[in-house]
Nucleic acid binder design. Structure first.
Length: 263
DNA sequence: ATGGTAGCGCTGCTA
């Protein structure tokens, strides 16, 4: 099974690029973030015509998460345990079971400025994600928590740590909050397969030619439970998808993370 | 050079 996660930075703007990528990469399950779409506008029929069932959770201009699967999709849920699905303010989590794997697509808050209310909300969101796993996922099962975590786990996950002093994504409190999620019993499978940095990066600023200068961060992660991590054949960043499409379409500022699992 | 790009949507916010 090929599992992927991709922050598309607007599904409407990226749709042609996404379709092209689906055909080339041929993933079985895709976690998507920043669709910036409503549930009504989400192109579920188009994805169905390509062989994918889907679930989307979005309410407009910001955020929005989805899961696509061509190996089954059931028990979808788009809110934290104990959260009223009708009262979700920010659409940042959706879960479904695909071919025996509990898949969670996450878009962790950016945090904006260290010390701000948004930074505090980011830390709280990560703590809530850990509580979600404790409350809703049986230990020892097949779990994949994938998405844009907006945290670079270590200094080797940024192109130049000195350029990030005082910035979000690299602070010890954010990294500790992420480690608390990992401590549930998850493996960062790309890092597991690529022990040395820098990178592999998954995000590059649109500005200043950052992608071509190699100035990125590794903030999109595939975190797999230990039993599932034992089935990983390969785990990598699909840098090709960060380049323009065949028709010159603008790419997302994120590249997909792809994980191939043995059956 | 205190900058830059992209998306949403129409003014400035978010990233």
């Amino acid at each position: 099974m090929r599992l992927a996660t991709w922050n598309v930075n607007s599904l409407k703007a990226r749709l042609a690029r996404v379709e092209e990528w689906l055909a080339v990469a041929s993933p079985d399950v895709v976690c998507m973030q920043e669709t910036k779409s409503t549930d009504a506008a989400f192109p579920s029929e188009l994805f169905a015509s390509l062989g994918y069932e889907s679930v989307h959770h979005g309410n407009g201009r910001w955020n929005g998460v989805a899961i696509l699967s061509r190996v089954g999709l059931r028990d979808a849920r788009a809110a934290f345990v104990g959260e009223d699905p009708e009262a979700v303010a920010e659409c940042r989590l959706v879960a479904a079971t695909c071919s025996g794997v509990r898949v969670i697509s996450v878009y962790v808050p950016n945090g904006r400025v260290v010390g701000s209310e948004f930074y505090a909300a980011k830390l709280a969101w990560l703590a809530r994600l850990r509580a979600e796993l404790d409350a809703s996922v049986p230990a020892g099962g097949a779990l994949a928590v994938c998405g844009d975590f907006n945290v670079a786990p270590e200094d080797r996950d940024v192109f130049d740590p000195s350029r990030f002093e005082g910035a979000t994504h690299v602070t010890e409190r954010e990294r500790e909050a992420l480690r608390s999620v990992l401590d549930w019993g998850l493996v960062d499978v790309v890092r597991d397969r690529v022990p040395d940095g820098p990178g592999p990066f998954t995000w590059w600023d649109y500005r200043g030619g950052a992608f071509h200068k190699g100035e990125g961060m590794r903030i999109d992660l595939a975190l797999l439970s230990t039993p599932l991590a034992g089935r990983v054949r390969s785990a990598y960043v699909d840098r090709e998808a960060r380049k323009k499409g065949s028709g010159g379409e603008v790419p997302s500022d994120h590249a997909p993370v792809v994980v191939d699992l043995d059956d």
